[in-house]
Structures are given as structure tokens and as C-alpha cells.
Design a binder for these strands. Structure first.
Lengths: 192, 192
DNA sequence: CCTACCGATCGGTAGG
DNA sequence: CCTACCGATCGGTAGG
């Protein structure tokens, strides 16, 4: 049983890497089997289907983001500080499990219904809660009076390149990277 | 002949839309044939292969960006103004042919060699030239003294969400969108 | 965990 | 532009 769940974990990690590198559709169960030194049919002792793997990756990561959001919402600090905490959240999640987050970001659209709909709901909820914080910041006069959705999506995608880029040269430490990104984004958003 | 090139154009546009919506690998030639009211085999009177379509999309767009870069490099203005012009370039290209740019952005990795290598070279060249402008701006004391690559990629990806988002609600005009994004990014990058 | 195999679908070709 | 069809590969199952 513990052997079993370990093996499943190995399969999930190999799958995340393949999905990130080749995409979900271009990854075959035989590719995945090769990566974990198994025959394709043996994979089905550990997982139910190819899509179940994608579901696990997508929903696990969605819940990591939502859990972080829930914590940050409860902080008794300014909107600006909450936004800074959210930027750090995105960077920390990326650092923790880069391949999985990348696959989650790029491959969720291959979910079938009803999973696709459920996933979109979670995502929508995360965005709404993020947007509410931004709107509070604008109301409070902390942030530039721009459209909240422009601020939201600019911020969102600004941290997304990390997922494609984190691996190569490491002349830049993760901490340095984090502080520079926060400098750029907060100065871009903050009023004066 | 002119009929022929028109039909080819229709096929390329339908393909870009399918590649954007489902991804290159998940789009079959039968999907594409249905979209243009043809049988799959008839597509091959207009195009040589599935990958040739992807090549056309990827290299056409790469050349649009490079042509814009060449023009902007020759302007006799400050680095900050060149960067503003580059941000506008990205937004304008997105507005002109949204589906094609999205497919180019997300699906180039499915190119086979030697096209993949050639594509990466063009991309690398574009990034280097962009980075040189950013570095000049830092040298000149116009931009915050951060790592040029952090500024580059933050800026790059900040405009990328447009590709996924441009379509829906149009309560925001494209001009308003453009000016807000430039406000956020330039204030984030500019010193003081 | 494997061998053997399934029906479906893939990109693409032959031939008209 | 179509019908008919190719070999290869797909996700997955049967049976041990």
C-alpha cells in the first residue's frame, strides 16, 4: 500500500513533466510508461485513466492557490500588503513544484466535463477574490485608479513566465528574483 | 490561383483557431476539414502537411515581431520611449490577428527539427535585442537598476494575457486597455 | 506486473 | 474535390 502510493506519486510526477514538456495530448501512455520503466498496461494498476492524472494535477494545484488565498484574506493588513503576499504566494508555489504548476497552468483545458466546468469555477472564484482585494486597494486610494481586471491580469501573467523560466541559469537567486518582481509590480500598481 | 490562395488562407485561419482552442496535437486534420467544409484528404490540395500549417503560423508571426523591432530600434528616442513602442507593438499585433498570435505563442513547441531550432533562434534574437534596449535604459539611469532579464520577461508576459482575454467583454476599449497597461509597466520599470 | 490484443482514430496517399 | 484505404499509434482491457 505504501509502496503503491509511492509508485503512484512517481507516475504523477513523471506525467507532470511530460505534460509540461510535450503537452497533454502529445504525451502517450506509452511515453509515460517508458518514463517510469513500466509497460503501458501496468500503469492502470496505479491510475484509472490518462485524464485522471490531469485531474489530480489540476485540482491539487487549484487547491494550493485557494488555500493560500484564504490565509491571505484573513490578514489584518492593507490591500497593498495582501497583494504583495499574493505575489509571493505565486512565486513560492512555483518554486515548490515547478513542473506540476506549469502543467496545471497550460493543460487544464484538456479536462473533460464535468471536471472542466468545476475547474473553471475554482479559477473564477480565485480571480474574483483577488479582484476584490485589488478593488479595495483602489477604493482606499492605495492603488492607481485603473480597471481592476487590467491590474489583475497584468499581475497574474507577470508571474507566469517564471514557470517557463525558473529552471535554467541560476545566477539569480530565487529571493533576488522575488524581490525584483515585487518591486516592478508594486511600483506599477501603487499610486505615487 | 487566386481562388487557391484564398482557400489556403481560409484553411490557415481555421487552423489557427483550432490550434488556439484545442492545441495543435489535439486538433485533427478531420477537425480542420470539417471547419472549412472539406474532406480531410482535400486539405492536401492546399497544404503539404499539418506541420506546414504550424510552420506558417509560427514564422509569419515571428517575422511580424522582428520587423516591428527593427523599426523601433532605429528610432532616435530614449530607451523608455522605445520600450513603450515595443509594448504598443505587442498589443497591436495581438489586436490585428489574435488567434494567430495565440497559436504562435502556445504551439511553437510542436515544430519538428530543423524548424524548431530555427524558430528558437529567431525568438532568442528578438529577446536579445529587446534586452539590449532595456540595458541601455538602465545604463542611462532611466530604468530601475534591476536584472534586465527580469524586466524583460515580466514585460513580455504582462502583455501575453491579452491573447487569452481580448475577446470577451468589450466594456474596455482597446485604447483604454493599452494606456492602462503602459501605465502599470512603465511606472514599474522607470526609476522614480 | 506482463503479453496479447481491442476498436478507434491518426496523418497522409492513390486514383480518379 | 471525392471515395477508399494505408500503416501507425492511440487509450485502454482481458487474462493470467
Amino acid at each position: 500500500m505504501s509502496d503503491n502510493s509511492t509508485k503512484k506519486q512517481i507516475i504523477l510526477e513523471a506525467a507532470a513533466r511530460l505534460f509540461r514538456d510535450k503537452g497533454y495530448s502529445a504525451t502517450s501512455m506509452r511515453d509515460l510508461a517508458d518514463a517510469v520503466q513500466l509497460k503501458a498496461s501496468s500503469l492502470y494498476n496505479h491510475i484509472a485513466s490518462k485524464e485522471e492524472i490531469l485531474q489530480t494535477i489540476c485540482f491539487d494545484n487549484a487547491h494550493r492557490f485557494l488555500a493560500g488565498m484564504t490565509e491571505i484574506e484573513q490578514l489584518q493588513v492593507s490591500a497593498t500588503h495582501k497583494i504583495e503576499a499574493l505575489i509571493r504566494l505565486h512565486i513560492h508555489i512555483a518554486k515548490e513544484d515547478l513542473t506540476s504548476v506549469t502543467a496545471f497552468n497550460d493543460e487544464w483545458r484538456h479536462l473533460s466535463e464535468p471536471h472542466l466546468g468545476n475547474f473553471k469555477s475554482l479559477r473564477k472564484s480565485y480571480e474574483s477574490r483577488f479582484k476584490a482585494i485589488i478593488e479595495a486597494g483602489i477604493q482606499a486610494g492605495e492603488l492607481r485608479p485603473l480597471h481592476a481586471s487590467v491590474l489583475l491580469y497584468t499581475l497574474f501573467s507577470s508571474v507566469r513566465w517564471l514557470y517557463d523560466w525558473f529552471k535554467p541559469e541560476r545566477s539569480l537567486s530565487a529571493d533576488m528574483l522575488e524581490s525584483e518582481i515585487i518591486t516592478i509590480l508594486l511600483n506599477g500598481m501603487i499610486l505615487k
